[in-house]
Amino acid sequence: MDSSRRDSFPSLNAAGASSSFLEFVTQNHPDLLPFRNDLTTGALPVTPHGTTIVALRFRGGVLMAGDRRATMGSLIASRHIEKVFPADRYSVLGIAGTAGIAVDMVRLFQVELEHYEKIEGTLLSLEGKANRLGAMIRANLPLAMQGLSVIPLLAGVENGTDRGRLFSYDVTGGRYEELEHHCVGSGSVFARGALKKLWSPQMAQERAVEVAVEALVDAADDDTATGGPDMIRRLWPVVFVVTKDGARAVPAENLARVAGQIMDRRMQEAREA
């Protein structure tokens, strides 16, 4: 029944009712949502989990970086998963937690923002985006209580300005603005420790990339679920910066250089811990 409705044309009376894709899908196509409330009881098999995301503000914008590992219990489920995505032109989204739900939630959030923009003819404010994401996380609360939680981070600039802002969430959809930096995921405690020492106000963008990669290296050092830069496979963290000009990924060659410098320095220092 639902697959036939999926191709049907929306009612013309619904027009103007809502600019939210989430609301429309919840009412008309609930089977498409990543979070459903009809999960049966029973033990859930081990599923892939995404791990560490770091985000920090710098002069002229905000940055978000994620490692590339997904784990399934003690196994590595993926070495090259991506957990940081552009949400729209002026914001990026990173998600830690149950990968299957997280990836779909990112897609849903991207469509939510684009849908609003197309229906209304204008971009949602950054505050508005943060609130929509909170509503989505709250909708996932029943699943979170069964162990399938996802924790996002949202970073962006208000359209056309260069003031980066950063929002963290809890499983109940609670939304908190972070003023300097924030980390989520299993390696977040170690990354946070690194950021406390490395981060400084008014950092330049290049320095911010170095700091974020180093924080992830520290997280990977002590957390088995976080993957460090992989020199053999040439896999680097995914790093996005958002500035006045919009969100863009830091190119792989820059990341290779930054990761290489950190590795060289640590090899020379030859420290144990």
Binding site: R6, P10, A14, F21, F24, N28, L32, H115, K118, I119
Partner: peptide
Amino acid sequence: AGVRYADV
């Protein structure tokens, strides 16, 4: 309605 159809 077209935007909704396409996005879904």
